[in-house]
Amino acid sequence: MNKNIFTNIETAWCPGCGNHSILSALKETLNILDKKPHEVLIVSGIGQAAKLPQYITTNGLSGLHGRAVPPAAGAKIVNKKLTVIVNSGDGDSYGEGGNHLIHNIRRNIDITHFVHDNQVYGLTKGQASPTSDVGFITDIQPNGSNNTPLNPILLAIALGCGFVARGFSGDHEHLINLMIEGIRHKGYALIDILQPCVTFNKVNTYQWYQERVYKLGDEYDTGNKLLAMEKSMEWGKKIPIGIFYKEDKPDFHDKISFLKEGLPLVDREIDFKKIYEFMNDFR
């Protein structure tokens, strides 16, 4: 196993799946950022996208469905030197893991969350996901999905997320740039990545996305929250991709002085004498 580059490992994804492009964009991003494999921890939940840590030579943790973000948060808090990335699907990130998404955006931990959003469940073979369009017909939604699709971009902006972007697996260069910016951002960065599922989503195909996506231009102001919210509601004939909103603010570590200063917690020794003195509380 060659660990000096982010090696190619045979995947179990379908040919043509958007995951391939996301994986190769991530490898290129890490190379461009000059990250060494051992400096990176990629955390996932369960799902097709969540197999990604298997296919890249970095540290990895595949946890439970919907629970990718909490272990990522725990790892980053205790070792600020690690570059911590979450790669998981729309079901994992927005369905089962919705609560953790909400509250870790609030915590503003310095992790980058890539959501492989194909608007469908792949691993369990084709059920509606939180981002499926209304009317999306599946085996268990024979009348079409009735639920209002979750808008991850609007949700993240509303929660005060400091970096909110949307990418498209079909635009590799653009995606790499988003990934670079997202990883560089200090704080929680959410990048929703549109990708086709060639097996279970016959509606939102590569072509479907290709016809609709357009890039937010240079004139777009990423610091304007109201504009960002307005833009995030654009979905249908035209779908914007790019950075919707960006704001630098103190992250989790900045707000706790003993975390911000000094060594990562994992490298600190116990101050045994101090702990012994705590016993005086009970005398």
């Binding site: 272990p71 725990g74 790892a75 953790h100």
Partner: peptide
């Protein structure tokens, strides 16, 4: 989340 955060911290050392 509580137990998964603790698990992540422990995995990180």
């Amino acid at each position: 989340a509580a137990i998964n955060m603790a698990l992540g911290a422990s995995a990180a050392g």
